[in-house]
């Protein structure tokens, strides 16, 4: 499948399809129904220094064309990920995996990355400065270019692996945040994380989510994500991973034409567990339809 191959920060991917963090766990649930080695790679559940229980229930709400989540970075903590999840993952996934990292301080981001840097299975560090569902961490670093740059510098100082900053769409000027990360040494940018949103239960007259607000994802956000990928990829030289509502092979191609070097698939996995595999299988057909020989040739192709 040479036609689908792309390169991401110096590592070759068989195809540009990456399952997005928070929608793919550590891969096992999906490995039960298909061989996940068909993926370009996947980004595992956001990992913090300490274990986190996450937010109270309900954490999930539905909406037209998408969903809201307020999971709140539930994870077993970096040491448990290294000692338990990665060895288990090794049995079902044989490619470099993307490690998604979150934190509540610059020091925490750096420490989690330092520990993951020693893991051979980890190909890239995806640094999440964009979680909308925790207080005093996550998104607060991604809405300020200076803070995002500070996290980037701190992480770059402790790892030789490619560092990808995952950005929040909940900002006035996404380009300034992306540029600040690039200037601070980031090797790539992924965007968008979820859009801050909410629902109200009519019977209860109360917010549906216990956290009041959550992050919107799914097909509803695709055009917003595409616009931001377009803007950021014009402004930076480092590769951009496009995500947000990608649900089919056509969406992957559209993202790449907007400037994405690779594409993540998130919410679609939760509704159709085989979504990533189906998209990868369908890509050659859609490429033929639009006269695309190799995917790597169309990155940013719509910029003219």
């Amino acid at each position: 499948m040479e036609r689908l191959a792309v390169s991401l920060c110096g590592i070759e991917l068989d195809n540009p399809v990456i399952a997005a963090s928070g929608t793919f766990g550590y891969g096992y649930e999906f490995a039960e129904i298909y061989d996940i080695n068909c993926l370009g790679t996947f980004s595992f559940k956001g990992t913090t220094l300490q274990a986190r229980e996450g937010n109270p229930l309900p954490r999930i709400a539905d909406c037209l064309g998408g969903m809201l989540n307020a999971v709140g970075l539930q994870n077993p903590g970096v040491d448990e990920v290294i000692s338990r999840e990665l060895p288990r993952l090794k049995q079902v996934f044989h490619k470099p995996v993307m490690a998604n990292v979150s934190g509540f301080s610059v020091v925490e981001y750096a420490e989690v990355c330092r520990r993951l840097d020693e893991q051979e299975q980890v190909g890239w560090l995806e640094v999440n400065v964009s979680c909308p569902n925790v207080h005093g961490g996550g998104m607060s670093f991604g809405t300020d270019p200076c803070a995002a740059a500070e996290v980037t510098r701190a992480v770059k100082a402790v790892t030789h692996k490619p560092v990808i900053l995952k950005l929040s769409p909940n900002v006035t000027d996404i380009v300034s945040v992306a540029r600040a990360c690039e200037d601070a040494g980031a090797d790539g940018i992924s965007l968008i994380n979820t859009l801050m949103a909410m629902r109200i239960d009519l019977k209860e007259r109360k917010p549906v989510l216990a956290n009041t607000t959550g992050g919107l994802s799914g097909p509803a956000v695709f055009p917003v994500a595409l616009r931001m990928v377009w803007q950021v990829s014009r402004a930076v030289k480092i590769p951009v991973i496009g995500l947000g509502g990608v649900s089919c092979a056509e969406d992957v191609i559209e993202m790449m034409l907007a400037g994405a070097a690779a594409v993540q698939v998130g919410a679609a996995n939760l509704v159709r567990p085989t979504a990533c595999r189906d998209i990868i299988t369908d890509l050659p057909r859609v490429m033929d339809k639009y006269g695309i020989e190799n995917l790597r040739d169309i990155i940013g192709g719509a910029h003219g």
Partner: peptide
């Protein structure tokens, strides 16, 4: 029965507290 996201263990949308953890 609680509000769920995926229904098959991927999204962590339906964690409850038990004597042996979440």
């Amino acid at each position: 029965a609680v509000r769920m996201g995926c229904g098959f263990g991927a999204c962590m949308g339906c964690r409850v507290e038990t004597v042996s953890g979440g």
